[in-house]
Design a protein around this nucleic acid. Sequence first.
DNA 1: CGAGTGTTTGAACTGGATCAAAGAGCGTGG
DNA 2: CCACGCTCTTTGATCCAGTTCAAACACTCG
Lengths: 228, 228
Amino acid sequence: MLTVASSNAAIRAFAPAALPSRATPRSAPETAGTVLAFARHATIFHAGDPATRLFEVLEGAVMLTQLLDDGRRQVVEIVLRGGLAGFAPADVYPSTCEALCGTRLRAWRKREVRLDAALQEDLMRRAERQICDLHGYALALGRMTARERVATLLLRFAAAGIVHAHDRSVSLEVPLTRGEMGDHLGLSLETVCRTLTALQRQGVIGIGKRHGEIVLRDTRRLRGLAGQ
Amino acid sequence: MLTVASSNAAIRAFAPAALPSRATPRSAPETAGTVLAFARHATIFHAGDPATRLFEVLEGAVMLTQLLDDGRRQVVEIVLRGGLAGFAPADVYPSTCEALCGTRLRAWRKREVRLDAALQEDLMRRAERQICDLHGYALALGRMTARERVATLLLRFAAAGIVHAHDRSVSLEVPLTRGEMGDHLGLSLETVCRTLTALQRQGVIGIGKRHGEIVLRDTRRLRGLAGQ
DNA sequence: CGAGTGTTTGAACTGGATCAAAGAGCGTGG
DNA sequence: CCACGCTCTTTGATCCAGTTCAAACACTCG
């Protein structure tokens, strides 16, 4: 059964809400747990900026990118709702952070965090999850084929947006270009493209005409392709 | 200038100390911050084990591995002195943890950690560093060539063991087989082998006869190969 | 000394990259 | 409303870095 209805919850999860289109956040004066809003493509921080704040994704998604001198780029992490961005072992951010779609973030000053044990415990739990996710990501980058990587990514977005988990078919709004997917999965954009097309031909997914619209037609098979 | 002296600090950093050769730790009764010792190849925990403890590497090194059904393996993280192992978002460990050489660990019960704000702050700082290291690792897996990956790994071990940073030449005891390096770097063991041989032919490194002994003859050039 | 594990090297193959070019949303301004 | 330009996507053809298969070699330890 096909679900293309644009009112699908999975779509809403990443759909840009009514947000200012300027790149700068409309920020309240900075106090504990300030909530900020960013539009698609807005930069939250640049690699090399002084690392003063830690962010939690409340809605939407951000990507963390790192560059090599010759321009090779890796999207080293995609942070979805509930995840944290802004970690820095030294005094500057090592990656650049960019909103993938309309996104709301909660920001804490690093100093504040240190004073609040309960907050710290909560953040620690999130960091723990993120470390384990990064381990799974390393497995994907190091040992999975292009098809397995793409399937894994689609399932990750599905998991973040699913309401009716028993549905066989789920419609997603993946807020990444083919190039960004490639840069995240360690593949060329052409390979991502070909892989998605192949999955479509096999009836596993459907590729919508709207930007980023992908329908998971057979999540069971997709899960099989991803190695469960 | 060549430094092969086995008394080199970089070697000592990973040399197995006098440790019990049994796989089980000689553990004191479990209280806060128990220190445990493991011999090379000892398993600290298996993927799927109930996740009750968090470990800090005091001396030596451990690796975290993950398997795919068909036997493909990824060493998803190598944890050196000061790093943490045992993160688990759910109630079981998602990876297997194994000592790479004689290793001492400090173990905390997860419950204990929650009660100790100072400890938690310290662990959070370590987790933060690890997340950023994992981001750099993703860059390596996703966008670096075999040579860059191998160079990066060697420099990481050098950084962990260096005493005289101004030395042009550093002797390392890398506690990994070619296969383990490959499984960490997303390469076949043959490629690791060939890459190391090529680096040797170019005079960048020397490969000792003892297991794991590698001499960095030109760290500047090696750093160049790693993309700094 | 002999078995076992790990390493090295060679030869052939291949998954994914690269290069190239055409096609398709989509906003923008006339 | 259409034409234009932009960015993103798709598809094809060729290439190559790294894999796979295979076999010899070398430590290490009982």
